[in-house]
Amino acid sequence: MLKTLMGGVALALAAAMPLQAQVDIRKETQRWQQMIAEGSPAELFEIEGEDLWKKKQGPKNVSLEGCDLGQGPGVVKAAYARLPRYFADADRVMDLETRLLHCMLTLQGRSREDAARRVFGNEDRPSEMELLSIYIAGQSRGVPMAPGTRHAKEREAFELGQKLFFHRAGAWDFSCSSCHGEADKRIRMQFLPVMSQPEGVRKIVATWPTYLVRNAQVKTMQWRIWDCYRQMRWPEPVFGSEATVALTQYLTVTGQGEPYAGPGTKR
């Protein structure tokens, strides 16, 4: 009898344990994230990014200050929060990095090879693209995320991104939804946000680009998508391609309305 009772208690404990562990992991992670957010080095990178924005470069020896990010040439205030959006001069929807690349080519006269040679930086040195992104995004603090949704191509990009989000392929048959489709799931100890739902994605689109503690690097949305596809065992997405912009458009529209609160620090 006692043995049965003990067995019962042990079983009940075993059943309760994973739940207990889950609650604690989440709480601990949040506490830690709050702690590191307070000492973010992102602001230092913003200053460097501003210098690059104003630096004369390329065959035409001009700065990016004439670049139209959607709010008029040179307007950086609140520009990031309104991206992605349709740009008539390029006749396509662009996210921040795709637009910056476009300005480097058209305004500064740089070759694509030169401008896109090093879009992702490393621990020693962030890329020009990353520093510029951090600076521009920082000028949208407090502005609700409101990507373009009126133009037919903006709507098309959303719908394409939505389909791509659920599209399974790659060596391991994964789509974005394989990991980000269900609530309260983890890879190892890492909780996974449900990116197809506003409540799961709002805080995320409002905090990239960001400083990533685990990489000790500044990272952008283009990188985040790129590294997801790496882990999904797909081939490599092309920087600024329609597919990557469509995904960003899908995620940003899904999470729209959240006041921009980056660039900060993430685990």
Partner: peptide, 23 residues
């Protein structure tokens, strides 16, 4: 459309070949 887009907007890198976007 999705397969065609994958073929255009992804590229082979290292051991990850383009056969991986075929269904």
């Amino acid at each position: 459309q999705l397969v065609a887009m994958s073929k255009r907007d992804f590229r082979a890198r290292g051991i990850a070949g383009m056969d991986r976007v075929e269904l």
